[in-house]
Amino acid sequence: MLQWENPGLVVEWIWIGIGLFLLTTILITVLVVNYLKSIRKSRQKVMQLVRNTQTECWENTLHIQEKDRERLAEELHDNIISNLNLIRLNINHKNRDELNLDLKQSMQLIRELSHNLTPPDLGEITLTDLIADYLNQISKTIEIDYRHRVTDASISSPVKLNMFRIVQELVTNTLKHANATRIDVSLRISLEYLMLTIEDNGNGFRQENNYNGIGLRNIQSRAQKISAAYKLKSKPEKGTKFIACVVIE
């Protein structure tokens, strides 16, 4: 029978083996625990980022809604109510044809306001026609040059709506503040991208002083929703130019 020459040495090596096994097990356990902690922290960071993004989007949505309400109140007070009040005051001083013309103008303002608040079914109209319909109404008060070049590209409803609202925001502010006599609008849609350019010949402004003067926050919010890159250029007495680009996926 085979016998060990030094049984004590064998026992020593056994204990060394057991110790190495235990150390390896502990090391693996520590690594697994740290890895799980890292995953947990990463998950918490992602969840916090999601919550922050949701909060920011909600705040932007509320801001846009509030701006729309303010615009509605302003339009009703400054234009429609004022026009109707003038009709009431002049009802005994104007003839029937003049009063009829004043009423038609008030009705036109109401139609424009309704169109601005609720555009047509986005699934049933192209962005080109949606903008054209809006600018056709504006052309009664200012010269509009609308150019468009479109390929057979599919544009989602969110892109249509937000680009349309951006056009409204820019044109409305041009009419109110720029003292412009002309607005040039260009829309180009290819299979890869959509590019919108709006330029006026108005007063312009110093961007470092009045960069928020044309409702830039609304434009920023809508551009972010559709991942649009944009640039605004303006100088005093040189007009204002806006360019936006959206990648079509």
Score class of each variant (00 low, 15 high):
Asn100Lys: 15
Thr128Ile: 06
Ser154Arg: 15
Gly215Gln: 05
Leu127Asp: 04
Arg165Gln: 12
Phe21Trp: 09
Glu124Thr: 00
Ile214Arg: 12
Glu98Tyr: 01
Ile81Arg: 10
Asp152Asn: 13
Leu89Ala: 14
Ile198Gln: 03
Leu72Ala: 14
Thr55Ser: 09
Thr128Cys: 06
Phe21Arg: 03
Asn52Trp: 05
Thr29Gly: 08
Thr61Met: 11
Leu76Tyr: 06
Gly215Asn: 04
Asp184Val: 07
Leu187Trp: 15
Phe21Ala: 09
Ala180Arg: 00
Leu194Ala: 04
Asn79Gly: 05
Leu187Ile: 10
Trp13Ile: 11
Pro120Asp: 00
Lys94Ile: 15
Glu124Gln: 03
Leu194Tyr: 02
Leu103Glu: 06
Ala153Gln: 13
Leu20Glu: 11
Val150Asp: 00
Asp102Ile: 07
Thr53Leu: 12
Gln3Phe: 02
Val150Asn: 00
Lys176Trp: 01
Arg69Ala: 15
Ile16Cys: 00
Gly202Cys: 00
Leu36Ser: 08
Ser186Phe: 04
Glu12Met: 07
Leu62Trp: 06
Ile28Arg: 09
Gln207Val: 08
Leu36Gly: 02
Phe205Met: 09
Leu101His: 13
Lys41Thr: 08
His177Asp: 03
Ala153Ile: 08
Leu232Gly: 14
Ile142Phe: 00
Gln3Ser: 03
Glu249Phe: 14
Arg51Asp: 14
Cys245Val: 14
Lys238Gly: 03
Val50Phe: 10
Gln224Tyr: 12
Ile155Tyr: 01
Glu249Asp: 15
His93Cys: 02
Asp133Val: 04
Asn95Leu: 09
Leu196Phe: 03
Ile80Asn: 01
Ile138Gln: 02
Glu12Phe: 09
Leu31Cys: 07
Leu27Pro: 01
Val33Glu: 09
Tyr193Asn: 14
Glu237Phe: 05
Tyr193Phe: 11
Arg88Pro: 00
Ala228Lys: 05
Lys160Ala: 00
Gly8Pro: 14
Met47Phe: 09
Val50Gln: 15
Met47Ile: 11
Thr25Asn: 13
Gly19Lys: 07
Asn60Gln: 12
Gly213Thr: 05
Ile87Ser: 04
Asn203Trp: 08
Gln44Lys: 10
Pro236Trp: 06
Asn83Cys: 07
Asp121Asn: 08
